[in-house]
Each structure stands twice: as structure tokens, then as C-alpha cells.
Write a protein that binds this DNA or RNA. Sequence first.
DNA 1: GTCTATACCCCGATAGAC
DNA 2: GTCTATCGGGGTATAGAC
Lengths: 192, 192
Amino acid sequence: MTPKTDLRETITEVSCNLFMEQGYASTSIKQIADAAGCTTAALYYYYEDGKEAILHKVIEQCVPDMMGMLATLEGASSLYELVMRLGDAMRTEGPELLRRLRWLMIELPNMGEAERAMLHNRKLEFMDRLTDLIEPFVDGRQQAEMLAWVNFCALFGYGQTFISMDLRSYRDVPDTEFVEMLATMTATTYGK
Amino acid sequence: MTPKTDLRETITEVSCNLFMEQGYASTSIKQIADAAGCTTAALYYYYEDGKEAILHKVIEQCVPDMMGMLATLEGASSLYELVMRLGDAMRTEGPELLRRLRWLMIELPNMGEAERAMLHNRKLEFMDRLTDLIEPFVDGRQQAEMLAWVNFCALFGYGQTFISMDLRSYRDVPDTEFVEMLATMTATTYGK
DNA sequence: GTCTATACCCCGATAGAC
DNA sequence: GTCTATCGGGGTATAGAC
């Protein structure tokens, strides 16, 4: 029963949680050690470079698989259905995914050039793929690209607003209605 | 010439800048004192409760006047024009406004219940007012409310994406085209 | 009002025992 | 591999001179 995981794994896991809750700067290695059930000295056995090394490991593991989310969009039969499926995916994987994106954005200043570039690439890949999926249903790639941005930004903005401002009112604006409206607007105006 | 402002004002001003750039947790009172041209002891003359007191003062002053932004929307003659004006307002006041909103969202965990409630109220007031402005052009208040959310979230998501991910590519997706598409979608589908 | 000087604590990090 | 013990440094905060 006891999840006798490696201490190394435990450290990254609890660090991930603490960093996301409090931010990197406000989390002390003492806190991490306590949460992991060891002393600070033990941390340095697994992460020679200390706190910062843990951060980079957490960042690496924290990057969400946004491509996987797009897989469910394949085979949509209309633009309306495509946007609805995107909304569904956001609702399903959204809370965790948006939490991660949000944290990564907050910690950007603590990242190195390489990490920033990696995230930037992931973003572009995601938008490219989403554009691919939209293109068959509209007039030209440029239109598809803009639609990808508008839809992504709307869903992203929706998620950030509620995740950030206060989780309790996540349902003030019903998510199904939000997505339906977005899908209707998109399909009515640009669907062919 | 020399802006011989009160030291008290200087302190809140430089604190605001430092907090927004580095975050509250990563800013030391020594940094604040240096930037304000005084010693840390002087800070405690104006803010007995130290760093945290400065934070609360900065939060208070930092809350953006979102209602003012909506004033420019009055008198719009169509739904399309209304959304375009909203986009214009976002582009004009947007960078500074989104920067503030973003910071406030990040520092939410450091706020008291009262501050959180105040921000929540401001948000609701803003959405209510935006709904008022949209209502004359659509079918019923419920539709207006949802449209307010979709449009706000899209513009907010757009701004957050570029402010956060990297400012340099703010123009990867041209902002005028983004707003035009949003306005077109909104007006075509729901304008009456 | 502002400074100097200082207290005290917690932080990140390491050496060396086990 | 993990702990105990400890160090140096920077952090917040304050007492008292001016």
C-alpha cells in the first residue's frame, strides 16, 4: 500500500505542489524537506545544485502535453463540432492544464533562455497543429490561423479568469454555454 | 524640475514597480529603500507594519479603472463598432491595464479576504456594465452577458498570452486583425 | 523625518558522522 | 543514502542618535 516511491521522485512531486501553490520564491527548501519527510541535507544528495536544480526539474516535468489534447479533435465533421470538442478537451484536461500553464508563465523570469525557447516552441507547435485542424473547414490558412488564436485565447482567458480570480465561482458563467457560444460564433461566421 | 514628491509617495511608487517586475516575495525592503533613496529604517516611519503594509497600499493604488475604459464604448452605433471600440480601448490602455491585472492575479494568495472581495466586485461591476452596453444590440440580457464574457475573455487571453510568454512577439498575431475577427464573429452571429 | 547600528531569524548550503 | 551540526549571508525589523 505505502507508495514507497523513490525519495528523488517524492522531492520533485512535493516541490511541484509547493511551487504551484506558493510560487518558487516563497517556498523554502526546509518546507520541501519537511513535506518530503527528510532533511534539507538529503535534498542536496539528489540535487547537487540545490533549490534551483529542483525548479528546473519541476519545470521540465510540468510542461503539459497540449498536443495530446488536440488528438481528440481529429475527425470532427464540422467547424462547430471542432470548437465544441476543443472546449470539451479544455473542460476535461483544462483545470490541471491551465494551472500548469499559469504557473509556468509566472515563473518565466526564473527560467533560462533554453527553457523559455522550449516553451515558446511548444506554443507555436500547438497553434500550428490547431490551425491544421481548422483549415479544412475555412477559407485559407490565414483565416484558420486567426481562428485558432481567437478560440484559444477565449478559452485560455476564460480559464485564467476563473482559476485566478476565485475558483469558487468557476461556474458563475456556465462553461458549456460559453463554449457553445464560441462554437456558434465561429461556425456561423466562418464555416463553409 | 526635480519631482520633489513626498518620500511616502516615492516609496509606494518604486515598490509598485519592483513588485510588478519581480513579484512581492522576491523584492526585499533593502531594494525598495535603495530605489527610493533612503534607508530601510525610513520605510518603517511611513509604514509601521513594514513590507506587508507597503504591499497593501500598492494593491490599493494598483487596481485599474476598468470602468473608465468602458466609457469610450458609449454611443457605439452597432455591435460591430462596440466590439471594435472595446478592442481599441484594450490596445490603448491594455498593456498597462493587463500588466496590473496580471500582477494582482499573481499576488492574490498574499491578499486578505477584503481585498479579494473588492477585486471580485470590481470584476462583476465591469462585466455588468459591459453587458449593459451590449444588451441593446442583441436578443435579451442573458445573451448579452455571455457575449460580454466571450469577448472579454478573448481579449484578456490574448493580452495575457503575449504579455506573459514574450513581449517581443506581441505582434506575431496582429492585434487589429484579432479584434476585427472577434467583432465580425460577434456581430455576424448575434447582431440584430 | 531620517540615519547608524544592530538584533535576530531564517535561508540556502555543506562537512562529516553513521 | 540520510542525518546532525553548523556556517555565512541576507532578510525584516527596531532602538536610539541627530
